[in-house]
Structure formats: C-alpha cells, structure tokens
C-alpha cells in the first residue's frame, strides 16, 4: 500500500495537527539501535546537553 494515500489530495484543514508519516529507509544494527534508543537514523535526535541556555525545546542535535 502507498502511504501517500494519507497525504495525497487530502489537503490540510484548520484546527488540526499533522505529523508527517515516517518512511522506512535505513536502519541501525540492533546493537547500535539499543544504545541509541531507536532503530531509525531519521528519528535519532540526541540531546545536545546543558549549555548556557537551560530553557527547553531544543531537542535537535
């Protein structure tokens, strides 16, 4: 089945939240996946760690 079904011709409506569908691409080896916390490189978003800015919301690398 083509997942584009969910996106194609649907358009987006007001007052709704949309998270894009992940499309399976590469995967980490199980050993590395367990250490990182995910099998999928595109979902791996490690915490940069405490810098001077202790406010939240920056969870990209």
């Amino acid at each position: 089945m083509n997942y584009d079904y969910y996106d194609r011709n649907k358009g987006m409506q007001l007052a709704r939240a949309y998270v894009p569908f992940q499309r399976l691409n590469q995967v980490f080896e199980p050993k590395e996946a367990l250490m990182k916390g995910t099998l999928f490189p595109e979902l791996y978003m490690p915490y940069k760690g405490k810098g001077e800015d202790l406010n939240g919301g920056r969870y990209y690398e």
Binding site: Y3, Q22, L24, V27, T38, L39
Partner: peptide, 27 residues
C-alpha cells in the same frame, strides 16, 4: 537477546502504524 528484542519493539511500533509496509515486515 536484548538487542534483537529492542529491534523488534521498533519494527512492531512502526508496523502498527504502517501495516502494509512489506520492507518493514521482512525486516
């Protein structure tokens, strides 16, 4: 065993929202 068990959790969750993904199923 923990490594493969974890890989299976990941494919399990992915397949729950992508049940027709044949590549994921093979994996």
């Amino acid at each position: 065993i923990m490594q493969y068990s974890f890989a299976l959790v990941e494919t399990n969750l992915y397949l729950d929202t992508h049940p027709y993904d044949e590549r994921a199923l093979k994996l």
